[in-house]
């Protein structure tokens, strides 16, 4: 069953001579529980596609359906609710809130949703992520790997339907990269969460069920390598 369906998605930035077609009539579907890797050169449109799938940006044309519902038919406020409930976003540069400690950063989407934090899930995630001893630390007290774990924890805290990661290991060393990907894959398997990862790393791409290659805003290959 498809959890996400993208149809004729186009994104154009700028106007006149500055006009850039970042995404050009892209259509694809992602099945629930799938681990999809999107690869491509810089400027191929990977991050744009990811942001559009996550409800962070609005497309120039085309639709994004999440569980059959048009993401961009929603108001800005409803789109914010969508982002905090149904999507978990992970960035290359962590993007943590500097004044919040580890557990506050991880639980921020829950708080924004006005719900009570599930302490059991928080402790479970902290333990899985190896952050149990760092709960009260601020981002600038953590290493890059630890910050990315916090970002993963934040993405998973709400148990979203889909986790979208934009080069999550791009800023980390080999050891940390491997550990981070193991965490994501583990989560994908344990919780059945759909995982879409943008990467330049061929090893990471090979961990995925499906690999999509992009070039100049278009999908040039879409290959299922597992299952």
């Amino acid at each position: 069953m498809d959890i996400l369906s993208v149809s004729h998605l186009t994104k154009v930035y700028g106007e006149g001579e500055q006009r850039t077609r970042a995404l050009d009539d892209v259509s694809l579907s992602i099945a629930e529980g799938d681990f999809v890797a999107i690869i491509g050169a810089s400027g191929s449109g990977k991050s744009t596609l990811l942001h559009l799938m996550g409800g962070v940006d609005r497309p120039t044309s085309g639709t994004v359906l999440m569980n059959g519902q048009d993401v961009y038919a929603r108001s800005d406020e409803a789109l914010a609710v969508f982002r905090r409930r149904e999507v978990g976003l992970i960035y290359q540069f962590y993007n943590l809130v500097p004044v919040l400690n580890v557990e506050e950063n991880m639980t921020l989407p829950v708080a924004l949703d006005g719900r009570v934090v599930n302490d059991e899930r928080l402790h479970d995630l902290l333990n899985r992520l190896g952050l149990a001893g760092k709960r009260g630390c601020l981002p600038n007290q953590l290493s890059g790997g630890q910050q990315q774990r916090v970002a993963i924890g934040r993405a998973l805290m709400n148990a979203p339907a889909i986790v979208l990661a934009d080069e999550p290991t791009g800023n980390l060393d080999t050891k940390n990269s491997r550990e981070i990907m193991e965490l994501l894959v583990q989560s994908n398997r344990d919780f059945g969460q759909t995982l879409v990862v943008i990467t330049h790393d061929e090893d990471i791409a090979l961990m995925a069920d499906r690999v999509i290659s992009m070039e100049d805003g278009r999908i040039v290959s879409d290959e299922r390598i597992r299952r």
Binding site: V99, N101, E103, E104, T107, V117, G136, L138, P139, N140
Partner: peptide
């Protein structure tokens, strides 16, 4: 990352140790 001073760090750590709900 914005650099937070020691006072901010102490407060963040204290918040994690506190028994009251996170948010």
């Amino acid at each position: 990352s914005v650099r937070i001073g020691r006072r901010g760090m102490r407060k963040a750590a204290a918040a994690a140790r506190s028994k009251r709900a996170i948010w």
